[in-house]
Design a protein around this nucleic acid. Sequence first.
DNA 1: GTTGAATCTGACATCGATGTTAGCTTTTAC
DNA 2: GTAAAAGCTAACATCGATGTCAGATTCAAC
Lengths: 125, 125
Amino acid sequence: MRIGELVRRTGVSERSLRYYEQQGLLVSDRTPGGHREYPEQAVERVIRIQELFAAGLNSKKIAHLLPCMRDADGGPSEIATPRLVAELSVERDRIDRMISELANSRDVLDEVINAASHDPRRGHS
Amino acid sequence: MRIGELVRRTGVSERSLRYYEQQGLLVSDRTPGGHREYPEQAVERVIRIQELFAAGLNSKKIAHLLPCMRDADGGPSEIATPRLVAELSVERDRIDRMISELANSRDVLDEVINAASHDPRRGHS
DNA sequence: GTTGAATCTGACATCGATGTTAGCTTTTAC
DNA sequence: GTAAAAGCTAACATCGATGTCAGATTCAAC
């Protein structure tokens, strides 16, 4: 598929897709005219990349991590080095803490939203 | 307490604490000489602010939200307007999605970490 | 009063993914 | 062949919380 379709199917902008390629996170074939051609598999990969960015990893760590991930079509092409494993463990724990904090914030928001809907001046009950 | 203690007890930098105040997220009394004096309650508040920042809210939304939150010492001082409730609901749902994605990323990291520790070339089992 | 630690204000810097624009080339549909 | 749509590269802009530095003032201890 070409970049437009990948944009549509992932919700990620052209700009970002090209940036991912530049950072070594995504590869593409080229048509004779120089247009990018992506395999079906790219959709899932792009979504993974987005998730990892959202989890606070930077391009470099993601670039190191990606070859060690199990793809949809098979096992990982590389095994993480001890050094990388150490780094990823730190990230993993950070993500876990972040999840707790997010759940906290969500509960806070729920409480505020709830308090408003139960407010005697405008609530339903 | 003064700012140094608040830094120690929250892990948030002086710079950020002053920024929070400037954004209307945090109030402080002043000594006759102009130094900030925080109530005990500030510790909890600062941690909440940090969590909300981590959840992707910006200063402005947090500023609107804070007066509607239940403090440790009592009920909320304001009830969220319908407009604010609508905004917060959007954020709430976004946070929920973010939690799912983070859990995804964490599982991906676990898998990579796990694969390395079970690697026949260096694993324990 | 003196001195060192703590705090103050204000300005400038940073980081990194993403947005945006411009100008050009390729592809596609007719 | 032509025209519109899609893609390409390259460069510059942005955003917002936070870091950092400089120079001045206050506080606390002696």
